[in-house]
Amino acid sequence: MRGVVAIAQNTVREVIRQRMVLVLALFGVGLVAASQVLSPLALGEGRKVVTDFGLAGSSLLATLLVVVLGSSLLHKELERRTIYAVMAKPIRRSEFLLGKFCGLWITAAALIAGMFAIVLGVVTVSYGETPWLVLGAMALTVLELGVITAIVVFFSSFTTPALTAFFAAATIVAGNFADDLLYFGSQGAAPWVARATEAVYWMLPHLTVFNARGAVVHGIAVAPERLAFAAAYGLLYLMALLIVAGAIFERREFR
């Protein structure tokens, strides 16, 4: 486990030092500023607009960070052969993978926390009221990012960065459409198509579970049982993915 911690720490450091975070943070601040400009145009709905844009922007940016940085994180180690020196230490490959996952998730979560703090601050200053309810949406977003990070790590355990980014993006899109898939499959398609779509439906992460943005902006709190459910679902889903990814990575040949 100490190996996992060391790798995670190193991954956090790597991502943070890649200035990517700085760019994203600036972008986040810019986004909030832009929504400030838009709010007078919103006919009295400025507060909702700022909150919506802030939440959507931070979740989008964190997802982007995870997909873009995550898809090359493992490959870069193999390509530059930095992994050789590390894997000659008493650490399992699956522990290495878990450390990468934790580091990336922690970084994404920290980024989300920072951006939500900006949203809270901007709304408080501009409208005199702190929308504490968005913290519920933040917790769910952090869980969602855990699942997305696991998806990225899973694909990167056996394929190239470009394909990882592609597959991860496809899975995220499909994960938002999971319930429609079933609907399409049931609309008079051949039985095997219906069965295949049903199988995909069951395997896909149902990301709508983690989306409470539409509720919190309208003052509806995230119920604790919803949070607990999402946490259980998200953690189990990402563990399943990581176990499979670890098994694949253990068997993979390094070049």
């Binding site: 190996g3 911690v5 060391a6 720490q9 052969r81 050789y84 020196a85 230490k89 008493p90």
Partner: peptide, 26 residues
């Protein structure tokens, strides 16, 4: 182990890299 044509993490200093190594060895 010293790898052939070694390559270590660009983002670290040697001190940090050796610290990481030490941490991996417990």
């Amino acid at each position: 182990y010293l790898p052939e044509n070694p390559c270590f993490y660009d983002h670290l200093t040697p001190l940090e890299y050796l610290d990481l190594t030490g941490a991996l060895f417990g």
